[in-house]
Design a protein around this nucleic acid. Sequence first.
DNA 1: TTCCAGGCGTATC
DNA 2: GATACGCATGGA
Length: 289
Amino acid sequence: MDYKVEDNDIILIHSDFDLDETLDCGQAFRWERIDKESKDADALSNIDYDKAYKGFRLNTPLLISQKKIEGNSGASKITLHNTSESDFLGIWVQYFDLKTDYSALKKAFSSDETMSSACEFAPGIRMLKQDKWEALCSFIISQNNNIPRIKGIISRMCEHYGGFPSYEELAEETVESLAFLRAGFRAKYIIDAAQKLSSGALDLDDISTMDLESARKSLMTIKGVGPKVAECALLYGMYRTDAFPVDVWIKRVIQKYYPDGLPDCIKGQEGIAQQYLFHYIRNKESREK
DNA sequence: TTCCAGGCGTATC
DNA sequence: GATACGCATGGA
């Protein structure tokens, strides 16, 4: 993992990192693409970039930009703006999973034909290793919901609390006091999760060390957490790459490409493979219409 | 208007 | 254990 510190920025040259494919693929809900005409773009007025995003890991903000390097197949210059080396090493290296070799992963995955197509379709996808509580809470909100509306609910939540709320804060709320979220039937689930964590009935650090089956069961004692949300909390919040969330889109993938089971080449890394498959089925088919 | 969205709780068999 | 249905909200 090579990087350099330049003024107040951290610079990476990377072949397996695309901001659109990683930050806008339904695994995290707080990244916003910066419109070049918007006020946010002012901070980048002296920067040469193709695309940029602003967002958060829990309550640490980041402005990140990408510029394709001409003549170097697929490589981009990624800049983490106004980021100290200690924040980079302490937060962002893990968040963007920078110690994992995605070229090697994709190569292994590509012995399967569908996986090969999915990796080729969006080669810049990376897993985002999110905060445990942020991931759990976000995916409780995600159920039977669409991505733009999930983002809206989480955005209203963060605006209201001045950042992503702690479970202690949410444990004090009621369905009525959370009406401003317009989260629908999910409000009571958010509160139940917050109360179980706040009271100590459940502990996400403990759960993260359990074997997969015990961790699932423990998470599913929360109202509104079923197999899919538990799997997402484990994958995105606790880095269990062998967790495999199955939502309506992945059900379509399985029905269409894997009626007889998942291929061996993704064993142990099912969760990461799932991210390529999810993006592939959601975007490829709409693009073909 | 109806259908659908990164599902789950509940009732019923 | 399997299956059917309702659920809040809002965009297509």
